[in-house]
Design a protein around this nucleic acid. Structure first.
Lengths: 127, 127
DNA sequence: TCGATACATCGATAGTTACCGATGCATCGA
DNA sequence: TCGATGCATCGGTAACTATCGATGTATCGA
């Protein structure tokens, strides 16, 4: 038997707030939805190329960069860089702004700050 | 031509410090190795189940939990939970301590703090 | 108007991963 | 000593993803 006491009346595939309170009186357990949200963004950070892209953008003049600024530094093809930037944009970690022929990407500081807060071990506070 | 000016003398697959200084005078660009390190850990956070596992451990009594405490809340099989915990342990986000029949996992706060610092937008400081 | 440029998308492929049941290896209690 | 428990690992599978070349779309300059 895996469940030692503290058993809800119904088998649930996710952690409900009730269960969390029941089994973890000390702190609050995040919900499956919150975990999904966080994981989606951390996943975008889970690739070395994308981490470097963020770093390059952050360090770039004006805090923004176009694809053509990024291709050479990361040493990958243009479609691949575009692909990674789309991942970052879909995760909400960067914004995209088309100006003429160029697409300028800019880091969303609030998103990164929210992630940083989520993993700051002050009782593992989430949002 | 993708590279507009600011061209190093040699094609490099990674960002060298010299290139970073050349093209991004404002800030420092992390090296490929640093990006690899960060991405490895963010990748471990890039799965909703693992995020929930961390949350469960953090909220658990004493700040530690064994596999059997985690199986029911996440609603997955024991091998799968073990698999995820191994991912987290390999990433250095949790420690494992065998006590008798049980394996107790505990969050490495310093690792999470380091990650939080890395993505804190204060000039995107890394380590 | 036309060629070049910047970028996204498509299609394909090789590598990775999340998941499970089965199994093996310890440890504990009887 | 033996069965049961807690956990890791193995083998397999389905789903995802990082990467590229080719191509399409829009913009700019001549």
């Amino acid at each position: 038997m895996w469940q030692t006491g503290c058993m809800p009346t119904m088998q649930l595939p996710i952690v409900t707030t009730e269960f969390a309170v029941c089994c973890a009186p000390a702190g609050e357990v995040i919900t499956a939805e919150e975990a999904e949200q966080l994981a989606r963004r951390f996943k975008a950070l889970g690739d070395p190329t994308r981490v470097r892209l963020l770093s390059l953008i952050a360090a770039h003049d004006g805090g923004e960069a176009c694809i053509c600024d990024l291709i050479y530094p990361v040493g990958l093809s243009q479609p691949t860089v575009s692909h990674h930037m789309k991942q970052l944009a879909d995760a909400g970690l960067v914004t995209r702004e088309q100006r003429g022929k160029w697409a300028y990407y800019r880091i969303v500081n609030d998103a990164l700050t929210a992630l940083a807060t989520a993993i700051t071990p002050t009782a593992q506070r989430v949002r």
